[in-house]
Amino acid sequence: MMIVYILKRLAGAVPLTFGLLTLTFFLIRLAPGDPTAMYIDPNIDPDAADRMRENLGLNDPLMVQYGKWLGIIPPFEGVWQGEFGISFSKHRPVFDIVLESTGNTLLLTGGALCVDLVVGVLIGIVAALNREKKMDHIITVGSLFFYSMPHFWLALMLILIFSLGLGWLPASQMHSVNVDQLSTPAYIGDMISHMIMPVFVLGIASAASTVRYMRSSMLEVIKQDYIRTARAKGLSERKVIYRHALRNALLPLITIIGLSFPFLLSGAVITEVIFAWPGMGRVTVDAIFARDYPLIIANTLVAGVMVIVGNLLADVLYALADPRIKLR
């Protein structure tokens, strides 16, 4: 039944994704500026710029451009044939560019999600178990501090302290310059040292909100009757909390993590730009500034698919964790 449900959801995701791409197609063309603007300087022949526009097919009427993009006007191949075109600014197939950057972004957001979950859940439990005590107040203030801190500011402060001041961590990029000469363990170590700050910046704000959710979820659960039953059985406090209470307190969190995935992705855009992380975020920002239409659409597709799959994953996990939920 679970398989049928997943297939149904995926089938429903296709028109959704297509609608998203179509919307993006028209919206970016509504934005002022055009892809040739970056080549225009006083020394360029205006005719040359127009030829460039003609070559890129930007002089066609909008609906013709859309038809070509869809792939319904032969001999042009479009999304229907799985062809997303050549990047205007990088002169390479957009899919090659996206493939390179998506893995890097997943590494960053995956790491951030781990920070979010581990830090958020553990500290949330500590806060709930010390309700209204000193520890709880410290955690509340701390989580509000990190929650309200803008990504870019925190990132700059970390670079200031740990890269420029103490010199412990590299300030940008994903690898050191001498990466080619490193052995495998050294290569991984090098990458981890580059990851620490961006992952922390990206993860800590969502961890701060997870702490708040976890705290209230845990407080809600520990006053339930079945927790009293577990104690009346003679179980140790550790088993009562980590087996009986935690499993129930985590349930609402699954949905929240699924919902926080888009925020992680959008946060990744800023974080990647600041730390010069070669991920989707930076590629997207560059593509938008260059009005590189095919690349923007390809990035929208990847981000859209990630959000849809993230939500589907959350729903499936919820059904697996809570026997009362049946997916249909």
Partner: peptide, 23 residues
């Protein structure tokens, strides 16, 4: 703890909510 549930056991008023829903 060694006495609870072992030598002295208890049942409660609300059977609907006294059992853990996820086990």
């Amino acid at each position: 703890r060694a006495i609870r549930g072992n030598q002295i056991a208890m049942i409660f008023q609300e059977p609907m909510t006294s059992l853990n829903p996820v086990f």
